[in-house]
Amino acid sequence: MKAPRTAREAHLLNCHVCNKLCFAGTTPQGSMAVCPRCGATMHLRKQDSIARTWAFLITSIILYIPANVYPVMTVTILGKGEPDTIASGVVALINAGMWPLALIVFMASIFVPLLKMLGLTVLLLSVKFKWRWRPVQRTVMYRIIEMIGRWSMVDIFMISILVAVVAFGNLAKIHAGLGARAFALVVVFTIFASMSFDPRLIWDSLGDDRKKG
């Protein structure tokens, strides 16, 4: 038996809470490992990582539909105004000549969520089918997804602030639509999904493969 290359191969795991390193041994079916120091549940890998990530990912994909179909925001100036969906908002900004703002909204509201959902899907599939393709790049992708995912909330924050600030009755008012709620949930669930994913799974399949080989 070769020297173990990973903690899992060495049957070692640390507590998520107090970071105590323990020896795992074998855990019988229907039982779970508990930290001997703080009593927290211990796992070799994130618990149900694949299933949870799938669940959150599917949820966010479902919600992404109403988020784009329903208007996120209605700007009414002097009684005149019409609801804007995310896409029409971007178009409106471009028409208004506000390119930088349009780019930010596009990145935060369309590109990033799509990228996240697509990326997570790829990662999940790669783990599922134990792809050995470019594990380093896949891990970097995960890191990027993890990092930029929360920035999608910029849109939601902007809407929240506008609704609160622009409240001049009939002169001008902004009203958040159903799409904004759905979009906020999309962002939240993609964050959950990326949190649930355990990037070590990418490397686990490589390890298995190596074992086989």
């Binding site: 019988p28 229907g30 930290c35 549940t41």
Partner: peptide
Amino acid sequence: FDRVEIKKK
């Protein structure tokens, strides 16, 4: 290392 404790889940 300390061995993990086992509980029913």
